[in-house]
Nucleic acid binder design. Structure first.
Lengths: 248, 248
DNA sequence: TATTGGATTTCGCGT
DNA sequence: ACGCGAAGTCCAATA
């Protein structure tokens, strides 16, 4: 074994297209994270299709088959290919150009990056065993409400989470102090009309499932609502309770 | 002016933390795309909050204030900061460590990456003036249906796009051959329950707006529907027409 | 493998 | 700045 625990890098500066091709191939073979910076065109065909004229971009190929093409602006890559794709690199001597291709079969997708010039190739090896700990999610909001049900209203009793209905799963299903059925939909942040539609679907479905004459209460729990969402709630006799995922 | 048209790179291999700090600072000052690969911890606090123990990661800082922290797996960054943030780098000699911080004020967010070892720093300069051309979008589906309305059904006449209602804007608003009002909701790909809820909101809102006794037809246009969505459509008297954004 | 809904969603457009 | 909905959304959990 020649594996090193310590992170390391194999770097090529302004390589020929042939050297770049070899460097990228070697890196991919070693399961390194390979980056290529240079002038290229990009073509994609699959769920949609796109073309991009020549420009300088940063391409990253991860050992899990992910490919990302980044420009100088924006958080999102210009083009990409998801994990699990097959990457191949080759030199087109006639053009001349270095071509990086990534494909997958379901769905059928193909990404092609054609470099006319390569400024840098880096093959980066290392390890990362840690998991991210994240708080402030919808799951945290659910925990908070289940631990302290009176945050919804006095007398609220949660009976189930993820209760299935014909329209999908209800976040929290319970009863109020008068024994009426309550459907709670949780959102970690300010909500718009879509969340109201979602809550309404669940309330409707539950009324059908129970073919109850007694009405089902629907309560949206989130830090805040938009005006339109508030009107929609009122239109359909639904309620809102303001609550945040964490206590700060 | 010392600007170069040609892309170029300034690279440091296994630099000291001090040299890395200087290289990153120089790169950011020159509006380069700066990448740092090394062993680091990451902390985020803002819309949510997260911590990440030490591991080898690839950090990218773009000239527009974007920061991305990538691991060896997945298309999405482990942590990030959106465009418009302020980045600063400093050396903590006591620890010792190199600290990269990115902050923004609305909403208040802070990302802190603390390197204990740096394997590579690259400052990448270049230009990219091209725009992506993309096809197969919902806009393409709308064009297709407006150009050939009979793809929906014989006698369909579109009257407006983006027609506003109390619940939001309708994709295509029109009439059928019997003069009945038609609401069309478009989706570029297979749809689930959420799209049905959306269509339903628009149909309801339109019936109110027109306080019509005559019923309003709601038609979902997409390549296909899931089973649950199909049931929901039936439950609410809504219709489905299969159509793709492009003719392949 | 497909379905479903969350996400520090991001992004673009309109008000 | 906020609201709203699309996205080649990605992603994990689930059936």
């Amino acid at each position: 074994m020649t594996t090193t625990d310590r992170a390391d890098a194999t770097i090529l500066e302004s390589p020929s297209l042939e050297d770049a091709c070899e460097g990228i191939t070697d890196g991919l073979d070693r399961d390194a994270l390979v980056t290529v910076f240079g002038r290229c065109t990009v073509d994609y065909d699959g769920r949609a299709s796109s073309q991009l004229e020549a420009g300088d971009r940063h391409v990253m190929c991860k050992p899990d088959g992910t490919t990302l093409v980044h420009g100088f602006e924006g958080q999102q890559p210009i083009n990409w290919q998801p994990p699990g794709c097959d990457v191949s690199v080759s030199c087109d001597h006639d053009a001349p150009a270095l071509v990086l291709e990534s494909v997958r079969s379901t769905p059928k997708e193909r990404l092609s990056v054609r470099f006319e010039r390569v400024v840098q190739v880096a093959a980066l090896s290392g390890t990362d065993d840690s998991d991210l700990t994240l708080s402030g999610t919808e799951a945290d909001l659910r925990e908070r409400l289940l631990e302290t049900p009176e945050l919804l209203e006095p007398g609220f009793r949660p009976l189930a989470t993820e209760r299935e209905t014909r329209a999908g799963a209800i976040d929290i299903y319970g009863e109020d102090d008068a024994g009426r059925t309550v459907v709670v939909e949780l959102k970690r942040r300010r909500v718009g009309p879509d969340a109201v539609g979602q809550l309404r679907r669940y309330v409707d479905a539950l009324e059908r499932d129970l073919h109850a004459d007694a009405s089902v209460r629907g309560i949206l729990v989130a830090p805040s609502v938009t005006d339109r969402a508030e009107r929609l709630l009122a239109d359909h006799g639904l309620e809102f309770v303001s609550l945040e995922p964490t206590t700060e």
